[in-house]
């Protein structure tokens, strides 16, 4: 409990998490507004007006949340406060789990605001029964952002603990999430199959987001299995980070 309080104070007493948090919300919700004002059934006949379609820009917020989470630990390495952290809590596993918990709660809250915020602004501009949250799949698309953002935060924190340097961690995370996963699909023959096992592809399939019109038939996993897969990757990366931090000299 005391470690959770300490980590909460640490996270919220500098400005960068606030800026990142704000950006992580404003960016996707803002682009959703833009999207909503641009599309209508006549100019975009292929566009499905479903709750899942309102979440198309959430990945922007996810990218910013990764920066937030990575910074939460790399800034500690950068400024040497990680030593004070481990001095106060020599059981490093406990200290880092407390940090993970705080980051996960914050990113989950951001995920909730992004998910419901994007959906709400879209629906405000396109009133109609299609955008109501009716089925379980509808809820999964919108409320599911809470889980996806929370796991994304934990995953990025794990990378941050492993890499320890802000620039390195942020570069790896953003290049991977924004470029690598998309480009893998370009590899002839096997590309698509590999892509089906990429973590953020998995997260998007859980949310039920359409993938640029490409066929999403014959996917290896269903939505919840994809979430479990994404969660497993997160646990492995975060676990590896914590394991490394325990073994290494601070």
């Amino acid at each position: 409990m005391s470690l959770l309080t300490a980590e909460r104070i640490k996270l919220l007493s500098t400005r960068s998490p606030w800026w990142c948090g704000l950006l992580a919300i404003v960016l996707p919700v803002g682009f959703t507004v833009l999207l909503a004002t641009q599309v209508n059934p006549t100019n975009a006949p292929g566009f499905e007006f479903t709750p899942a379609a309102t979440q198309g820009t959430a990945s922007l917020g996810r990218a910013v949340v990764m920066v937030l989470a990575a910074l939460a630990v790399t800034s500690e390495y950068r400024f040497g406060t990680i030593r004070s952290t481990f001095q106060a809590a020599p059981q490093r596993v406990a200290a880092l789990l407390a940090k993970s918990a705080v980051v996960v709660v914050l990113t989950a809250v951001i995920g909730a605001v992004v998910g419901f915020g994007s959906w709400a602004v879209f629906r405000a501009l396109h009133s109609g029964p299609d955008l109501d949250l009716v089925t379980a799949a509808d809820w999964r698309s919108v409320a599911g952002e809470v889980l996806v953002f929370a796991l994304t935060g934990a995953l990025a924190l794990g990378v941050g603990i492993l890499v320890r340097q802000t620039a390195g961690a942020v570069a790896i995370l953003l290049v991977y999430a924004l470029l690598v996963e998309g480009l893998i699909g370009v590899i002839p023959k096997v590309g698509r199959d590999i892509q089906h096992w990429m973590p953020f592809f998995a997260a998007d399939r859980f949310l039920g987001i359409r993938d640029g019109g490409d066929d999403l038939q014959n996917l290896p996993l269903g939505p919840w299995a994809y979430l479990a897969y994404f969660a497993a990757i997160t646990v492995v990366v975060l676990g590896a980070g914590i394991f490394a931090a325990v073994r290494r000299d601070a």
Partner: peptide, 19 residues
Amino acid sequence: KWVHPNRSARDHLRWLAAA
């Protein structure tokens, strides 16, 4: 110098105390 430059002195001590 092992202090976050953007954290106030009081907040720095506050998190240490909380821990």
